[in-house]
Write a protein that binds this DNA or RNA. Structure first.
Length: 553
RNA sequence: UGGGCCGUCGCCAAGCGGUUAAGGCACCGGGUUUUGAUCCCGGCAUUCGGAAGUUCGAAUCUUCCCGGCCCAGCCA
């Protein structure tokens, strides 16, 4: 069997970079960067950007930096920075250099002084409210405020004193002097620096002023020699500002920004605000809750780096506002685990089956293939005795049409074992099924039964050998495709997104598996030993994804 | 209503003036199967948001129209 080989998909960014390389632009070099702000955990949308940036660099023998966009200390923390590094590494990417926008604060400051000297930037002492009023609206131009024509000397003096910490937060900003009547709001004298007397995760209290994203990003790109600055569509009308800053200044490089559509995934949310809300309002247990669309959440759920990269390959890169169906992601992990995951048997809701025509001390050892299509996966022994567990769902007193599992008076194949027939249902005083009494056909081990067809096959676990385990079943967190557009979560949260089953019985070998080991529980789906809670005493499995089920539909 | 974008099969997505308009997912058959899984075979856009136009020839060029997304943080 071969692993799914991701085919190289053409997209407009790849075409563009290829054309640049062929034309000898940037000396044929390709340098990209992944620039997260350390103010939250990475999610599957970031994975798209990571795969694109690292992928393009690797495809064209270039480099990709990891750069923390740490220009707003009020929202950033070291915890997030650590988690981001771990997630990028886990996804399988190695950055060329680890950089921070804050590495460039001194250069950025010098560049700002240069803009002031050129008369292209000025200190505005209006309040935030006044600035907003003066900026105009989408259809009306902005109007010049009283500080727009300050002299170079005064601006320089004020800006230096801003840096020296002489002024309180909010009293002054440095603005670029561009075009107050531009249809593009970003060009109406955008703010370049604001005063924030806040401790920064890397520079501490060295700076009372911090540069804004638009001013910082283009210069950071230029300083690092980035050739292709890839970002999402909402930055499209920031590009004129990105270019304006670089045009005014003499910088080491001439990066070019290209925008692509951010990922939208059905039945989940991908905005930082919404993700934080899920954690803070306790709709999930943590950032790495297996229901979270964070990288760390998918990891705990049992997704692999390969499957996430494969997913990013499958969805493509365009400028379309695309909504990706969850099934695309699910198929990425199914396709990998179908090939790689060893098969095991686990019973989630046990019902005891007594094989009445077997002696009480009867035992037999059966050999099972770990993978039906791959002999190299090896075999294992499984015990069989008079009492076994089967799943509640695999017996029906009143079977629906086309039901092919066990029914009273009917036969079913125990996977890898004998065909059994159900003769009696034993119930307790409340009418609950306690035991099923069956007989077995001794001629059916490894052989088809004679004179009749038995279509159904069910999984089982030997009652003597079975080990108690906890299995966590997951379903989508939301009940609607676009929960982000709902006014509140309460109306769109799926109350059954997590179901913890504690009475499960699994094959003994499963208990000793290391955390983050993937298995297929036959007929049930793919499961992973929980990264944090799994142990020998209490094995814990998370359902990554079900098997495709054409019958359920 | 100012500015910037986007519209190819149910969901993605190739295509860049001459192709029978790739491919994946989903779906619908049929075969294999001791997982209702996997695997295999077949089907699935005379048509590219709409209308004009240019051209021997248009999804690809032009114009207009329709629909959708983004922008008025001292956030990124």
């Amino acid at each position: 069997m071969s692993k799914p080989e991701p085919v190289e998909v053409s997209n407009f960014i790849r075409n563009l970079i290829e054309a640049d390389v062929n034309a000898g632009k940037h000396d044929g070099q390709v340098v990209t960067r992944f620039p997260p702000e350390p103010n939250g955990y990475l999610h599957i949308g970031h994975a798209k950007s990571i795969c694109l940036n690292f992928g393009m660099a690797s495809r064209f023998n270039g480099r990709c930096n990891l750069r923390f966009d740490d220009t707003n200390p009020v929202r950033e923390s070291e915890e997030y920075a650590l988690a981001i590094k771990e997630d990028v590494s886990w996804l399988g990417f190695e950055w060329d250099e680890l950089r921070h926008a804050s590495d460039y604060f001194e250069q950025l400051y010098d560049y700002a002084c240069e803009l002031i000297r050129q008369g292209k930037a000025y200190v505005d002492s209006s309040s935030a409210e006044e600035l907003r009023a003066l900026r105009g609206t989408l259809t009306e131009p902005g109007t010049p405020g009283p500080y727009r024509e300050r002299s170079v000397e005064e601006n320089l003096d004020l800006f230096q004193r801003m840096r020296a910490g002489e002024f309180a937060d909010g009293t002054h900003v440095l603005r670029a002097k561009i075009d107050l009547s531009s249809g593009n709001m970003n060009l109406r004298d955008p703010t370049l620096y604001r005063i924030r007397k806040v401790t920064h995760i890397r520079t501490g209290d060295a700076w009372p002023i911090y540069p804004m994203y638009d001013y910082t990003h283009c210069l950071s790109d230029a300083i690092e020699g980035i050739t292709h600055s890839l970002c999402t569509l909402e930055f499209e009308d920031h590009r004129p500002l990105y270019n304006w800053v670089l045009e005014q200044l003499t910088t080491p490089g001439q990066p070019e920004q290209t925008e692509f559509a951010r990922l939208s995934l059905e039945y989940t949310v991908l905005s930082k605000r919404r993700l934080i809300q899920l954690v803070e309002e306790n709709h999930v247990h943590s950032w790495d809750d297996p229901r979270m669309p964070t990288i760390t959440g998918f990891r705990r759920r049992g997704y692999t780096p390969e499957s996430i990269r494969d997913f990013c390959e499958r969805i493509g890169v365009t400028k379309n506002d695309a909504w990706i169906e969850m099934v695309i992601l699910e198929n990425s992990i199914r396709d990998q685990l179908n090939v790689e995951a060893p098969r095991r048997m686990a019973v989630l809701e046990p019902v005891k089956v007594v094989i009445t025509d077997l002696d009480d001390d009867y035992t037999e050892t059966l050999s099972f293939a770990n993978h039906p299509q791959d002999e190299s996966a090896g075999r294992r022994d499984i015990g069989f005795s008079k009492e076994i567990w089967i799943d509640r769902d695999d017996f029906a007193e009143n079977p629906p049409p086309k039901y092919q599992r066990l029914v009273l008076g009917g036969e079913v194949r125990l996977r890898g074992c004998y065909v059994i027939k159900c003769n009696d249902i034993i119930k307790d005083a409340d009418g609950n099924i306690v035991e099923l009494h069956c007989t077995h056909d001794a001629q059916t081990l490894g052989k088809k039964p004679e004179g009749r067809k038995v279509k159904g096959v069910i999984h089982w676990v030997c009652a003597r050998q079975g080990v108690n385990a906890e299995v966590r079943m997951y379903e989508p967190l939301f009940t609607v495709p676009d929960p982000g557009s709902a006014e509140s979560f309460s109306s769109v949260i799926n109350p059954d997104s997590e179901k913890v089953m504690t009475r499960c019985v699994v094959e003994p070998s499963l208990a000793t598996a290391a955390p983050e080991t993937h298995f297929q529980f036959e007929r049930l789906g793919y499961f992973v030993t929980d990264r944090r809670d799994h142990n020998k005493e209490l094995p814990v499995f998370n359902r990554t994804v079900t098997l495709r089920d054409t019958w359920a539909k």
